[in-house]
Design a protein around this nucleic acid. Structure first.
Lengths: 105, 105
DNA sequence: AAATATCATCGTATATTTACGATGAACGAT
DNA sequence: ATCGTTCATCGTAAATATACGATGATATTT
C-alpha cells in the first residue's frame, strides 16, 4: 500500500521526492562523491571504498541509475560508472528552487 | 539488518542522507510548501490539502519534525506547525555544498 | 574450450515505510 | 462533569529498502 497515493501529487513534487530518495542513503552520497573524485569508476573500485558487499553496492548503483544521476558504460567485463551531469544539474536547480521557495533567508 | 552499516559513513554524509530521507516523499515536500505559504498551520488545515488520512499526515509531520525541518507548538487542542528556518538553512547550505562538490557546472 | 575476472541478478531475511481505522490524551465549551 | 474537537499514537497490513551469499551472464585470458 505504501506510496499508492503518489499519483495525487504534482509531477514536480514527485520528481524532487524521487531524487531525494536516491540521496537518502549515505552509501549513495558516498558513491556520488567517489565518482566525482575519480571522474569515472569501475564497480570494483567503488566496492573497495565502501563497507558493503559487491551485491549491495550494485543495488545502490542501480538506484542511482534509476533516477538518472549516474550512467554505466560497459567496458569489456567491467562497467564504468560516471555522474550524469545533466540530471545532476537539473536536480541542483530544482532543489535550489524548492529551498528558495521554502526559505526566508 | 537494513542500515546496520550506517555507522561506517561520515556524520556529514549521514546527516545529508537523513535530510534527503525526510524529503523523499511528495507529501512531505507538499507539507513544507504549505507551511511556507501559510507561514504556520494547524494539522487539520494541512490534512485538508492532502489526499491522505489524518493519521498518515501526522506520521509525515513526525518525520519532518524528527530531522528538525519543522516545529510544532501546542495551541489549545490544536497544534501549530511551522518551518524551522535554522535547520532548513543548514540543509540548503549542506546540499549546496554537496552539489558544488559533485557538479561540473 | 576452459578458466578467470567482473558485475548484475536471484533468493532470502530483516527492518523500515506508508497507509488506514481505532483508540487515547488534552483542551475548550457547554 | 460531560461533550465535542483536535491531534498523536497504537495496531495492523502491505509495500519497499537494505544487506548478504549464491548464482548467472559476459568478456577476457589462457
Amino acid at each position: 500500500m505504501a506510496f499508492s497515493k503518489k499519483e495525487e501529487f504534482t509531477k514536480e513534487d514527485m520528481w524532487l521526492a524521487d531524487i531525494a530518495k536516491a540521496l537518502a542513503h549515505p552509501a549513495r552520497i558516498r558513491i556520488l562523491k567517489i565518482l566525482t573524485s575519480m571522474n569515472a569508476c569501475m564497480v570494483g573500485n567503488i566496492v573497495e571504498q565502501l563497507p558493503l558487499s559487491q551485491s549491495t553496492v550494485s543495488q545502490h548503483l542501480k538506484e542511482l541509475k534509476r533516477v538518472g544521476l549516474i550512467e554505466g558504460e560497459i567496458d569489456g567485463p567491467k562497467v564504468c560508472y560516471c555522474i550524469n551531469n545533466k540530471t545532476l544539474t537539473k536536480a541542483k536547480k530544482e532543489m535550489d528552487k524548492l529551498y528558495s521557495k521554502l526559505c526566508n533567508c
